[in-house]
Design a protein around this nucleic acid. Structure first.
Lengths: 189, 189
DNA sequence: GTCTATAAAGAGATAGAC
DNA sequence: GTCTATCTCTTTATAGAC
């Protein structure tokens, strides 16, 4: 529809509700209330509920991608440091930011075919970034295994943290990232 | 309500739909059609839709628990073999059986408070089994790290396979289990 | 145990005034 | 850009006949 700051803000608020309640259980009336408007007004900003979901997922994936890229640029080329940076960036968008990226991962199936086609290149770009960093680590021998499987196992371990991580607990997202990478590392040759 | 074979069969069919569509998007009419009855008749077997979900999740967790226990009994006490057995059992119930256990993991949040209270001991028992096996592996030094984090990372990597595993592809669930455990193993001292 | 019929509530979305 | 009002459809669940 457009890209106004207003729409961005509404998208951000929608993301919060989608995480809390799930997309299916979030009604347009709940969304409107969160945004401080009436439900009828919502459709001035978005064509339908699907479009809100697509906006949230686009925002969440773009954000994750740009944060990951920025984190990699601050690294030198040490494969372990780059793995670590990716894991920290991923957990930051999932557990600290705690919104749009979670929706992108957990509500992807609720996108209709058209939105999915439009957004899959973004998701693919993010996953490709992970695979690149994992390839570097495999090539350097700091981890071992199959590139495809390792990347999916690592992303799975990270994505599932959403289900059990307690922000009030003692461990920080950074602790989690460090422990996960440590768990994967092969011994120094 | 009861434990008839009929109810078990209906529960099995409900599980399939819940995996395909998600709990929220599965209507009682879809459930009834899958079961070959009319929607009104459904409420003779289950008090409400919530009770169907609770039945599916109970069935899925009990099944996962008994399969994991059986797999462990076939092992000797080698910690690596036991880890491997747990991973294989877990993936078998998720990817081969492909039903109730998936619902238990992915629709837990949709349970109401009462059902959650009633079923959490089952889920805890299953997670405790995992933690025991991981403890043994930590004690033997075949893996390293924090017991709590390792078990959650491993379960996360396994649970997320549901999202990307292709049953028509070249890799079997057994392949996945083997690769995951290999990825975790520390070098022999 | 299953059916038909329907009640009651809630959903997404639209129209037109302001 | 937001409001009120409302349409239309779908949802879960119930009642009572068979």
């Amino acid at each position: 529809m457009n890209d106004s700051p207003r729409r961005k803000e509404l998208t951000r608020q929608a993301a919060q509700l989608f995480v809390q309640e799930g997309f299916d259980r979030t009604t347009v009336r709940m969304l409107a209330q969160e945004m401080g408007i009436k439900s009828g007004s919502l459709f001035h900003h978005f064509r339908d509920k699907q479009e809100i979901l697509a906006a949230v997922i686009e925002e969440g994936t773009e954000n994750a991608l740009s944060i990951a890229r920025a984190a990699l640029e601050e690294c030198d080329s040490d494969p372990e440091a780059r793995l670590h940076a990716m894991a920290r960036a991923h957990l930051a968008t999932l557990l600290t930011d705690r919104n749009a990226h979670v929706v992108a991962l957990y509500e992807w199936r609720r996108l209709d075919g058209q939105a999915r086609a439009h957004l899959s290149h973004l998701r693919d770009a993010y996953e490709a970034l992970w695979e690149t960093v994992i390839d570097e680590a495999l090539a350097a021998g700091v981890i071992q295994g199959d590139r495809f499987l390792v990347s999916r196992f690592v992303m799975g371990a990270l994505n599932w943290t959403v289900r059990w991580y307690d922000p009030e607990g003692e461990r920080s997202p950074e602790d989690l990232a460090r422990e996960l990478i440590a768990m994967l590392m092969s011994p120094r040759a």
